[in-house]
């Protein structure tokens, strides 16, 4: 079958168009309109008038933040039980599903036979993470979420991009940390990666204090 060739000719410019001048003037009309409108609005804003009409679309970033969508995937966090232990049951699904292989979990035995396991170590390397959100999708316990709204992730070293269980459970923590706020047994970097904490301390918390999301050690 022979292909049909369609010749599309560029439309010829009329004399008026070849002059350029009407086109230039109509272009200038647009830019002048924007210029004087925005100039007027900027001055009006200085005087506190017409604030509902924006003079520019600029967002002054560090002082002014754009609203985030509720589905936006930001920095991860681990949800916490009432007694201050992670909701995570150490099933390794997120570590398995992670396409960037940025999650490292070391599970430990949980005293409650209904829970079975919990993470004694939970690391996410944000320098590797691709923010796909699969870990959140796959979690059967709603233990990991990406709803902290933290976007300005930057660090001077690769090590500083690695989140451990302390930061994941309390997104307001900033490195370098000075004291550990977790009471259950976990591999604590403040303790040179050795195990720290005990379940008795967690039990004590539960009995002494009313339910609380964050407990101080």
């Amino acid at each position: 079958m022979a292909t049909k060739v369609i010749v599309v000719r560029r439309p010829e410019l009329t004399f008026w168009e070849k002059l350029f001048i009407p086109q230039i003037l109509s272009g200038l009309k647009i830019t002048f309109r924007h210029f004087f409108r925005n100039l007027f609005l900027h001055i009006a804003h200085r005087l506190g008038r017409l604030v509902h009409l924006p003079a520019s679309v600029t967002v002054q970033y560090p002082e002014e933040l754009r609203p985030l969508m509720s589905r936006f995937r930001s920095r991860h966090r681990l949800t916490v039980r009432e007694d201050g232990t992670p909701r995570c049951v150490g099933c390794m699904l997120c570590e398995t599903v992670c396409p960037a292989k940025c999650i490292t979990i070391v599970p430990g035995e949980h005293p409650d036979p209904n829970v079975e396991k919990y993470p004694i170590l939970f690391d996410i390397d944000l320098g590797v993470c691709v923010y796909c959100g699969y870990c959140v999708e796959v979690c059967p316990e709603d233990a990991i979420r990406m709803d902290t709204g933290i976007l300005d992730l930057a660090a001077y070293s690769r090590e500083a991009m690695q989140l451990d269980i302390h930061e994941l459970m309390d997104p307001s923590l900033l490195k370098p940390m000075n004291d550990c706020n977790l009471s259950f047994p976990h591999q604590c970097e403040l303790n040179d990666g050795e195990m720290k904490g005990s379940w008795e301390a967690v039990q004590g918390n539960r009995h002494e204090e009313p339910p609380q999301t964050k407990t101080q050690a």
């Binding site: 830019t31 924007h34 210029f35 925005n38 100039l39 900027h42 003079a55 520019s56 679309v57 600029t58 002054q60």
Partner: peptide, 10 residues
Amino acid sequence: KQSALIQDRI
């Protein structure tokens, strides 16, 4: 500034 005003920037 002029280019900013023309292009709705600051």
